[in-house]
């Protein structure tokens, strides 16, 4: 092993052997090849030596690494790392991509914040603050005049100034919508409150126009040879059962011995109007529709034309106030 050739000094075989060469040059080339083989062997030996030398060190490193990992496993660090990884995985899975991107964009600012927070001056400030808070907690709360007097102290004034600065920063942060202020994602729209719908559903259905009057307190009596049911106020319960004979019988009970043409006109109008509108007409509707004076109605149906016409017509009590 006279010389050890460098990698770039070992010639490639195809640069060495060519078919059209003569014997002396061939010899020379064979010599060079032998030298190259020697050099390669020398390198192999070097590597072997190196590996032999390194093995204990590598073994030691691996052993140390394994031991370290074992320690981490034992003190829970790895468990923490694993759970943290799982948490990050969950975040990545659940968060929308744009939020993750925003987080990544903010990472730079976050790192700056962390740097700031870890500055020694800040630590000292925090320590002083905590100490001051503990001190303030001891005695009774200071009187207002003591507080006012305390503002003479330069340190207090500086503190107040700093507090004002903080307040200003917070104030300006909430003012600017972009950049410095934290932009919260818009709240998802709250589900429509079902209260209204429920109320609408539980609302009793609109009263049918001619509701059967409550049977409570009603009575039934024979009129014109048939039993007729009345409610407590003397209105027929079943308008369908009405006949002209029944009408005459009801009228007789209220002092009208024989219904006249004019009275029949009113009764017929009431029935027709109730059929079309669904409600018993009030007195004003009767008078204005038929073009008769209220005075006349009081003559035709004395003692309460507002109710008597409907009673005789076999209709429910009018709901109108006029």
């Amino acid at each position: 092993m006279s010389t050890v050739l460098r990698n770039d000094e070992i010639p490639a075989p195809w640069t060495v052997l060519r078919g059209d060469e003569d014997a002396p040059s061939l010899h020379e080339k064979l010599d060079r090849i032998a030298a190259a083989v020697e050099a390669l062997d020398a390198r192999r030996q070097q590597l072997e030596e190196l590996i032999t030398d390194l093995m204990p060190a590598v073994n030691g490193a691996v052993t140390i690494a394994i031991r370290r990992l074992d320690e981490l496993e034992k003190d829970g660090s790895l468990a923490f790392a694993r759970s943290a990884a799982a948490a990050f995985g969950r975040i990545a899975r659940t968060a929308e991509p744009e939020r993750l991107l925003r987080l990544a964009e903010g990472a730079d600012a976050l790192m700056r914040l962390v740097e700031l927070a870890s500055a020694p001056e800040l630590g000292a400030l925090l320590e002083r603050t905590v100490a001051a808070v503990r001190e303030a907690d001891k005695g009774p709360p200071p009187k207002l005049r003591h507080l006012v007097r305390a503002t003479r102290e330069p340190r207090v004034r500086r503190g107040l100034s700093a507090t004002l600065g903080i307040l200003r920063a917070i104030g300006s942060g909430t003012r600017s919508p972009a950049g410095t202020a934290l932009v919260l994602p818009a709240r998802p729209p709250a589900p429509a409150r079902p209260a209204r719908a429920v109320r609408a559903a539980t609302k009793p259905p609109a009263a049918s126009h001619c509701p059967p009057p409550a049977a409570r307190g009603g009575s039934s009596r024979m009129l014109a040879g048939v039993p007729v049911a009345f409610d407590a106020e003397g209105f027929m319960l079943d308008s369908g059962a009405w006949t002209r004979e029944i009408a005459q019988a009801i009228a007789a009970e209220y002092g009208i011995a024989q219904l006249t043409r004019s009275q029949w006109d009113v009764i017929e109008f009431c029935q027709e109007d109730a059929r079309t509108t669904g409600v018993s007409p009030g007195l004003r509707r009767i008078t204005t529709s038929l073009g008769i004076a209220p005075r006349e109605m009081y003559g035709l149906f004395p003692k309460g034309p507002g109710m008597l016409a409907a009673r005789i017509a076999g209709l429910p009590k009018p709901k109108s106030c006029v």
Partner: peptide, 12 residues
């Protein structure tokens, strides 16, 4: 007036 009128319509 409405109350008085209602009364009269009822025969009161």
């Amino acid at each position: 007036l409405i109350l008085a009128n209602a009364a009269r319509m009822m025969g009161i």
